[in-house]
Amino acid sequence: MTTAALPTAHAPRARRRRGPKWLAPALFLAPGVFMFVVYVIAPIFESIWISFYDWDGLGPMTFIGAANYVELFDDEAFYTALENNVVWLLLYMLAVPGGLFVALFLNQTVFGIRLVKSLFFFPFVISQVVVGLVFAWFYDPSFGILAMIFEAFGMKPIAILADEDYVTYGIIAAGLWPQTAYCMILYLTGLNAISPDQIEAGRLDGAKGWRMLWHVVLPQLRPATFIAVVVTVIGALRSFDLVSIMTDGGPYGSSRVLAFYMYEQALSEYGYRMGYGAAIAVVLFAIMMVYISFFITRMISNERGGR
């Protein structure tokens, strides 16, 4: 810290004599690198290490090799969770076009539009737990609004959250509500930055409606789209809170996702299989890794291209 503060205290010429060129950046990076190593890198390897053990978190650890993985690949619940994760990833993407649509709709100058925009953004501001509770009531088969709508049409209400076929879709719908709002705000800021010249030029060339959107507006929204996709993928993969609040993985485990299954095996009331939980975490990490590497290569190539 003291070394880092030195350059400001001395004349610029003295700086060069103070030590090798790499020292200052290294020192500035050190706190960040330290945190990253301790809280991100080390836990990754620790998880991988634990996943080879049978451990209840209290007693001694027994090395069991790949037995946790062997068990995992023979575990129906794991495949249910994996399948649900895929469904989550695919359907959660609806938040991106949904957010774009709302943003385009709200991107106009009328009286009170700021208030309307904030109202649309509201679901993202409230906690996921509240979203989960609100939707759980919405779906409630005896007093929920959905049940009332079904009854108004003379149909028997479906208990969405108690039906193994609908439950995941029901939770995703709840998750899309705040996620769409998030994407919307990203696109709204993106739309602000659109250059009016290009719109004007496009209009002179006779572009209208869809063609204008597709060829003129969307390309300029690419950075916003990229971020929207990124946050949505992350949102889908860490979809833990809604599952926990709305169904607790039920009915009979049919709405589990990998993150929730890991929590259940490692930390919940009936769990405490740290090794097995870690093995699930490693698989989830491997899946995320595919996406993360894509993200990183793309970021690097973008940065290089921009230079």
Binding site: A162, E164, G250, P251, Y252, Y270, G271, Y272, R273
Partner: peptide, 22 residues
């Protein structure tokens, strides 16, 4: 059941009972 059977068995068991009841 969840105090007589070990935790892991209890969890799987009760999940099975729930599935059976549906």
């Amino acid at each position: 059941y969840d105090r007589d059977a070990p935790a892991e068995m209890a969890k799987a068991g009760m999940e099975g009972f729930q599935e059976f009841m549906v």
